[in-house]
Simulated scan of single mutants.
Amino acid sequence: NSPETEIFHKGRMLYGLSRARKAIGDGVTVVVVEGYMDVIAMVQGGFNGAVAPLGTALTESQIEELWRVMPEENRAPVLCFDGDNAGQRAAARALERVLPILKPDYSVKFAFLPEHHDPDSLIKDDGASAMQRVLDNAIGIFDMMWLEESKGRNFSQPETKAGFRSALEKRARQIANMTVQEFFVHEINQKINEVFLSNNTGKKGGNSGGFFKGGMFKKQMPGVHTPYRPLNMPAKPIRTSRLLREKVLLAALINYPELYEEFSEEVGMLEIPNEGYDGLRHALVQFLSEALEGEIYLDHQAVKQHLIVQGHGKILDAIFDSSLYVHAGFAKPGQPLDIVREGWKDAYARGREKSRWHKA
């Protein structure tokens, strides 16, 4: 923690950047961690793009320095924070600093470590794959804005929804580049309309993609994740070995939390003969129930991030292994909600049939 001098500028320099520069140029993920020891642990774990501020909060100059050394096609460093309250506050401050300097194709992502872990302890306890999982689940600036502004809000009243929209637009107005600002404001209006003003209110049996009274979950939009079969074709039966069935049921609700209200009773009573999977089920039920009661917007990224912070990262990896969508393509992100709903019902019903047969 040396003082600033004419040569040494804490707010501009980053620990480890001179070493990481070549790896960054080769396209490795740039990860900004909190301190020197975190950088050392990350590099020892194989994350050669790790850097850290020099004993201060991340500054605008440091972010811009990273953008300068990153490849043109990938100017989005991951800012990695502890999962506790202090880490959340540090992420909120970083968001405030980055918004005014955003430019087209220049961005950052936000990642959060599991509670009670720093990079060193996470890599030592759970391996480099656990750290990679944290980075893979990093969220973008817009999602970070949404999560920050939704904290502590109850969306049951029109005026609170209006206040939420105003707060988001106020943040977007901090962006100096007018092109980027315009797109953020457009995205805010589009998402607010989908979440709060859709005519489809997410009632049971509907097809709105809505979770709460105001349609609190975004609709599934067409894109690269197109359905693997036409809508008019019946859902393909899936293999239902005991643990595979439970993996499929949990994965579908994680990817489509908007279905929780419809299947809350079933998943709440689900019997899973595996302590780790059942622990994740319990955490998922608690999180989605609290979100439902508080009318809080969530998507699959927010659900996964929460489960990782709660220490269920290894089980998430086991659930979302490479074979999952081979057996249950309906649970893949981007599927029509009706397909997911029918697939979930089918997997659940098949398990109940087997259970009744064994009891008889």
Rank of each mutant, 00 (worst) to 15 (best):
Y348F: 12
L147N: 09
F212T: 01
F320Y: 12
E266H: 07
M37S: 03
Q157N: 14
H306E: 15
V195D: 00
D38M: 01
L14Q: 03
T29W: 00
K236A: 03
I339G: 02
Q62M: 08
I101P: 06
E96D: 15
V185L: 14
E149V: 10
A90W: 05
G214M: 03
E258T: 08
V51I: 08
R12F: 07
E34T: 00
A328E: 12
G140I: 05
I296K: 08
Q181S: 10
S208Y: 08
L54K: 04
N207E: 12
D278L: 10
V195E: 06
Q44I: 00
L95T: 11
P333T: 11
I315V: 14
A86C: 10
D118M: 00
G334A: 09
R245S: 13
W344P: 02
M42Y: 00
F142C: 04
L197V: 00
A328R: 02
G279H: 15
D38L: 03
V39L: 01
D317N: 11
K151N: 02
V134M: 07
A318Q: 13
G279N: 15
A252W: 07
S289C: 00
A176Y: 03
D136C: 05
G35S: 08
G276N: 14
L270P: 13
S355R: 03
K204L: 11
F112A: 09
R89W: 06
A86E: 11
V30Q: 04
Q301E: 07
K247R: 14
T59K: 05
A283K: 13
G11V: 02
E6M: 08
Y256N: 10
S121Q: 09
